[in-house]
Structures are given as C-alpha cells and as structure tokens.
Write a protein that binds this DNA or RNA. Sequence first.
DNA 1: CGTGACAGTGCACACATGTTCACCCACGTA
DNA 2: TACGTGGGTGAACATGTGTGCACTGTCACG
Lengths: 208, 208
Amino acid sequence: MSQTRVEQKERTRRAILDAALTLSEDSALVALSLRQVAKQVGIVPTAFYRHFPSIEDLGLALVEESLDTLRALLRELRRAAGEDAATMIDGSVTVLVEQVRQDHAHYGFIARERFAGPAAVRDAIARGIELAERELATDLAHLPGTTAWTERDLEVLSALIVGAMVITAERLLGTSPGSPAEQRVADDARTQIRMLLVGARNWRSRTP
Amino acid sequence: MSQTRVEQKERTRRAILDAALTLSEDSALVALSLRQVAKQVGIVPTAFYRHFPSIEDLGLALVEESLDTLRALLRELRRAAGEDAATMIDGSVTVLVEQVRQDHAHYGFIARERFAGPAAVRDAIARGIELAERELATDLAHLPGTTAWTERDLEVLSALIVGAMVITAERLLGTSPGSPAEQRVADDARTQIRMLLVGARNWRSRTP
DNA sequence: CGTGACAGTGCACACATGTTCACCCACGTA
DNA sequence: TACGTGGGTGAACATGTGTGCACTGTCACG
C-alpha cells in the first residue's frame, strides 16, 4: 500500500477533470471559473494549483484525454475492418454511435471547444482530426479499386468521410442515448456513407 | 435632417455589434463582458442597456444578422443556378468562399457559437442550417435524375451536401483570404461536391 | 522514530463584473 | 421659443474572480 499517496492525488485530479467536464456542459471552458471547479470538487480554490497551473491547462488535459478516447475509437474501427469497404465504414458508424453515447460529455466538450476554446485546445483538436484523415487515407489506399486514384483525391475523399463523421457526431450530441432520434441519425449516416462509397467506386481521378 | 436622432441610435447600435464581433474574435460570446464592449465602443457601461437587455440578446441579434447574410448567400446561389446540378453546386462553392472571405468575422462567430453559445443562439443557428437543408432538398427534387428518389434519401443527400459546406466554411475560416491555402480548400471542396454528385447520379433508392 | 515533502487550508488583497439609480443636456416637436 | 423624450453619464452596490502567502496535518521513507 505504498501507492496510497499518489493514488489520492490522482483521484483528486480525476475529480477536478470530471467536475470541469460537468460544469462546462452547458457553457464553455472559458466561462469556467477555478472557484466553481474547486467548490464542486470539494477543495479550496488554491488547492487547484497543486494539479494544474491554470484552467487552460485543465482544458488541454481534458482534450488530450478526449483525443485518446477518439484514438481508441479509431483503433477499434480498424480492428473491426474487413477487406470490404462497405462493411468497414458502415460498422464504424456503429462504433461512433456507441462511443458518443457512452462518452457524451467528452465529445460534447470537443464540439464546444473546437472553435470556441483557447488556441492550444483548438490546435490539439484540429491535429486529432487531421490525423484521423491521414490514417483513413492510407487505409483507403490499401483497398481494392483505389489503385488509379491520385494521392490528393484520396486525401480529399478521406476529408469528406471524416467530415461526415464529425457532423454525425455533432448531430448525435443533440439526441439522447437510445432514443429513436439517435437511431435515425445513425441510419442517415449509414446511408450517407453508402452514397459516398457509390461515388468513390465510380470516380476516376484525372491524371495530374 | 429629421432622421439624425434615430440615425445616431442606429450608428451606436452598429458600433456595439461590431465591437462585440471584434472582441469575441478570439474567445467566446460568454466570455464577453458588457464593460469591455462599452469601453471599445466608447460609451459608459450603463448606456449599453439602451440598446440591448443583455449580452445574450446582443449575441442573438448578431446571429440573426449573420443568418440574414447566409440567407442572402443561398438566394444568390439559387439565382446563379442553372439546370445542370454540377455547375450549380460547383458555383455555389465559389459564392461560399467569397462570402466567408468578406464576412470572416461573422462566420467565425457562427462557428464558435454553434455549440458553445447560449441555448437561444445555438437554436437559431441550428434552425438556419436545417432551413438550408430543406431548401436544398426541394431544389434537388426539381432536378432531372432524382425522380426515383425517396423523399428521405433526398433529405439525407441534402444534409450531406450542406454538411460538407459547413465543414468547408469552417476550414476556410482557418485560412487567410486570398491565400493559396484558401484556394486549396476551395478546390478540394469542389472535388468533394463532384464526388458526391457522382454518387448521387449512380444512386438508386430502395423502394420504401 | 524522526523528518521532510506536499496535498489541502484559510485569509487576504486588488480587481472586474452586472445592475440600480438619479442625473444631465441636446435634439425634435409642438 | 418652450418642452419632454431619450441617449448617454457617473457614482455606488454587492458579488465573484485569480492569486499570493503562511499554515497544518499526514503519509512515506531514511
């Protein structure tokens, strides 16, 4: 039990992160005061500094955490992927829906801070999305039927798909988990991806 | 010259709106203080109340204004539209780029407040986007080649296209007007829309 | 057993904020 | 020319904010 001390610190840190997530649920990070968070956690304001230098760093930590979750989602996506593009991307919608459902607060936080947050936070989110696009592009390149594609066209298609995913996630955030509305958004997303795939299959890159 | 009094009031109102737009450029509306705005405009804090009941109402007015601009964009889009879907949507990307370029601050504001803003503001933006989707859907229904389409599929396609437009606008906000980056985003958007159209042309709705 | 590290406390300060109120004084009207 | 409407003023308030400082108690290690 020589871990008790550091365990306790980690527990408070988690409590701070969770409190920030809860409190910023219907507002923005920038409107979050250090004192509110401290009160919610049950510590005195100054104790906050034992864990984070400022609210902005709190936000950054929160984003890193969210992006790890997102990264996990994408790994899960790739693990469940087969050779068939249709079932691969189709199934990934299911994964997305599940992830957003169970980490509602995290994804809500990302959506909110994507443009309204501090510069560091915005950059971190943008990098995460770009990374997803690049990874998808390389995955698409390995699929049959894309051999004649320009590299640029592959990137553009990836951006289109990831963009549709982002918008789907944002739509999901407006629905309550398990509701018919959620189901409808998911179905629509699947239809959209299928439309995209039909377009991709019939696409011929112009020779650059 | 019997208009001077009301003219002056309108001028101050504009100054307040512009100041709010400028000040919230790298932050969020919720982080905007009435006193900051007043100082920027050059009036005393209490004079603010002569024009708006609260900062939230200021934000709402700002969104209405932005949505009017957006509405104008869409009207322009439809005016320039021919029978050919390709040139219609292709050209609309050009219009979008121009609009975002010249009203950078307004669209930045919309992007920021879309999820981070007060509930009333968020709703107003969401309604604007939904309206755009519905209008596009009815326009698409009038185009040749979509006669066999389900109404639902038309809506889903519209949402996909408008979504791509939203994401394109967001990307444009990250580029400086007239830069090569802006050009690249615009080109990519056009490629994306073309891919979407290829998909749409080869799409057959399942009979419901 | 003793001791140092350190998460958490309590107080203090200097500001910034929203909102109120009574007060101007210039403009448009009568 | 006289008057009242109304945009703008300035002081005042209660409250909330970030942050510095000296402190305390307890856990883990030499």
